[in-house]
Design a protein around this nucleic acid. Structure first.
Lengths: 114, 114
DNA sequence: TTACTATATAATAATTTACTTATATGTACA
DNA sequence: TGTACATATAAGTAAATTATTATATAGTAA
């Protein structure tokens, strides 16, 4: 079976992007659920601009997509990305992060939009 | 089959380390061959301190080991690292870098030690 | 309209990273 | 010994990254 590969430059760039705990957790969560920005703000207990900037980096290289739904903007994994398979191999090795969303629901802090 | 996972912090740290083209290429090469520092200096056409500093970062987290052989210090992949399996999944997806060593041999610039 | 909510962007400041230059350490060999 | 070679470390600097604060944009609803 032929193993698909990715150029070294591209690989290093993707790894650097994922080499940040916030962004890595974001894509791990997005791998199971679309999320809007406000959820990430709650989950990471950090400022909205900071979240937006992380999401922008992921979007700029095409790892995630954004989609407006009314007032909110939802992010999702871009399964057509050239780097999707590469990223998946990494995400598969990470522990599930669904508990982070569950906590929001239980606290009632999960925003009405979602 | 149970999928082994790695903590998010640790994963992000390893990805950040590998998210540098020089270090990523280093570990990809080391995955097939032990190398001494002088080879890397030739391959990457950069200064010896710069190479030493990259190797130190890889060594500090235990991804590679160093071993003195006479005048030279050889680096190798540390297969007993907690992060070995995680890294392997990534390295498998990268194109072979053996041509870099071959070029050294052909140019006669591959150092006598190696 | 106006006010409010969600998000993005810009500008700045703080931190981190990577490279350079200089120096130290350790081995080999005359 | 002393000198040369291989490598590591330290210190300084430049560049890149991240977070913060302030502001802009876009939708929604009164």
């Amino acid at each position: 079976m032929l193993q698909t590969t990715i150029e070294m430059d591209k690989a290093a760039m993707i790894l650097k992007l994922l080499g940040d705990k916030t962004r890595l957790t974001m894509v791990k969560i997005l791998d199971n659920h679309d999320c809007c920005v406000c959820e990430f703000v709650e989950i990471f207990k950090t400022s909205q601009p900071s979240i937006s900037q992380h999401l922008r980096k992921l979007r700029d290289v095409g790892l995630v997509r954004e989609e407006r739904r009314g007032q909110w903007i939802f992010y999702s994994i871009n399964k057509t990305s050239d780097y999707y398979a590469f990223m998946q191999q990494i995400l598969q090795q990470l522990p599930d992060q669904d508990h982070k969303l569950k906590e929001l629901e239980e606290n009632g802090t999960r925003i009405t939009c979602c």
